[in-house]
Design a protein around this nucleic acid. Sequence first.
DNA 1: TAGGGCCTGGACAACGTTGTCAGAACGGGA
DNA 2: TCCCGTTCTGACAACGTTGTCCAGGCCCTA
Lengths: 353, 353
Amino acid sequence: MAETASRLTPHRYGSRPTMKDVAGRAGVGLKTVSRVVNGEPGVTPDTERRVQEAIDALGFRRNDSARVLRKGRTASIGLVLEDLADPFYGPLSRAVEEVARAHGALLINGSSAEDPDRERELVLALCARRVDGLVVIPASGDHRYLAPEMAAGIATVFVDRPPGQIDADVVLSDSFGGARDGVAHLIAHGHRRIGFIGDQPRIHTATERLRGYRAAMADAGLPVHDAWVSLGSTAPTRVRAAAETMLGGAEPVTAVFAGNNRVTVTVVRVLASPASLASPARPVALVGFDDFELADLLRPGVTVIAQDAARLGRAAAGRLFARLDGDAGAPEHTVLPTRLIARGSGELPPTTP
Amino acid sequence: MAETASRLTPHRYGSRPTMKDVAGRAGVGLKTVSRVVNGEPGVTPDTERRVQEAIDALGFRRNDSARVLRKGRTASIGLVLEDLADPFYGPLSRAVEEVARAHGALLINGSSAEDPDRERELVLALCARRVDGLVVIPASGDHRYLAPEMAAGIATVFVDRPPGQIDADVVLSDSFGGARDGVAHLIAHGHRRIGFIGDQPRIHTATERLRGYRAAMADAGLPVHDAWVSLGSTAPTRVRAAAETMLGGAEPVTAVFAGNNRVTVTVVRVLASPASLASPARPVALVGFDDFELADLLRPGVTVIAQDAARLGRAAAGRLFARLDGDAGAPEHTVLPTRLIARGSGELPPTTP
DNA sequence: TAGGGCCTGGACAACGTTGTCAGAACGGGA
DNA sequence: TCCCGTTCTGACAACGTTGTCCAGGCCCTA
């Protein structure tokens, strides 16, 4: 009777019952409740039952803030990335979460929106919450602000891009090699005038991929005109303008290498648009960095340099928990290979204008 | 000198300096440090400077766990969804994060993987951390377990699907109306035999969309054969089999309505595959629920019922923070409209086999 | 039946912060 | 010179949990 009533009328609105309340109701000591809640041994079945009843009746739920304060570990890790809505980061984020879950940790994440200040603010907020560790996709080029935190014991792994000004565990895809392979693929199919459209130059992967492009061109003894290279925002208008410029100049390119999935998608749109300088009679070849859903269903299918976002996430989270489990070795730099997936757009032959 | 040294050798590895340490070093009281850290008034500039120097020297960072314990609010909200990697949830999640950020809160999120037990486990873990509020995309059909938490003051908003067995704020898209419109669109283009492939029947949106399908068929006086309706997992193999069955039966459908973006993509693949029962000579019309990237670039473009995931997220987070700001009104049920985007696949005429 | 060991339960301090409250220092006016 | 008011500062308790440590009761054996 009384039990039913109190089940429906909790302790007090907004202020939850504590172990003390449970102990009082069950007629046992505080520590005994703690033991029951944490499944520690040393409680007779009868006592345990009484405590459990009190817990259910009061709707008690352990306050993890207090627990964390006492124990020092939060069983949570932070993930800072650029944009949760980017299809590249979804699987990465998911993979990190899976690993965290396997280690009994929760994931707190935030988007930096490619803004260094916001990255810093987010990271420090996570440190203030005393996350056990951090997985960071850097937006800034200077991570010295993290050094004291790392020294204080917050394990940190960088992924997709290396940290700036400090040394730390990092997991990358082979941007340089991938881009070089992709451009070499275009060259192998006869292209000589190839354009490169990439992300902003302060982003490490963008410059690495550009470096790969230049290496492939140099390996083939091909010149690179300034007008063929464009780094900048991945906003569709910017990318569209860049594509139209290199397709329409005095020395128009016959193929484009797109620096990431955002760029690739926009280039596909440009090439497909009726007003495009490309046409069925004069197709433009395309290879993009990053695979994306439906790339195979477009006509022609889009040839890509695929990186495995989930694997990046798993590898990074794996490093992180290895650190949390006591690995104190030197920072590890992991580079995962990329894979060229030929689907047609990279195999189009060049046509003279 | 001494300062430089201590900057590089923090207090002790793994155990960070506290306000007490800062106070000791600055030669002030504990509370004064607290005042400086929180920007409270009543500290002379000189004292503030001394404290700030000590903070910098020691690498002090406030421990939010202790703060939360004392203050009762965590400035964090939880988001439980099905799968972070699903392109539908990316923008939703991002929108929730934006709103949270605007309110100074961090976002903790977890994937339920469509598993009711996992949902419950996640939600309760978040409650134990005393998140201020929860945004939940339900995987389970019974949320009575949440009632005590909500009574204890954890604001909760459900989004995309309604909660089970309890009443609470909820933000939905108009699944019924959207599906009905989509099927009506196919009927308007001459189709009489239309198939429906949807998600598992325990998912609310799946059954609502099926209901919309049936309503449109009934409105047009068309019969629905059992073989034309298939609910189940969105795994490609299952969807593929379902599609092939309804395309190949005694009364083959001439159009398919796909219940969500996962299904749509697989159906597109089936229809595009060379072995398909569809062919250029006998195209099959398609309308899908949910818009998706590149839908416009496929040939034919895929006609969809678009829902605005970001808007769902914003609306849900908006409700949540309204609750946290004191709104104690009755639970609100918000239904956002959907929009048909015609791109070609829904406008194909029926062909007799 | 007494003594020893084991098992169960509880009192208490500590974690790092913030709110309360009172005391100290300082300046100005009588 | 003294007193009062204002401003700044610090001591202390409290938040809810867990770890330490000790007390009491039980069972077993001699």
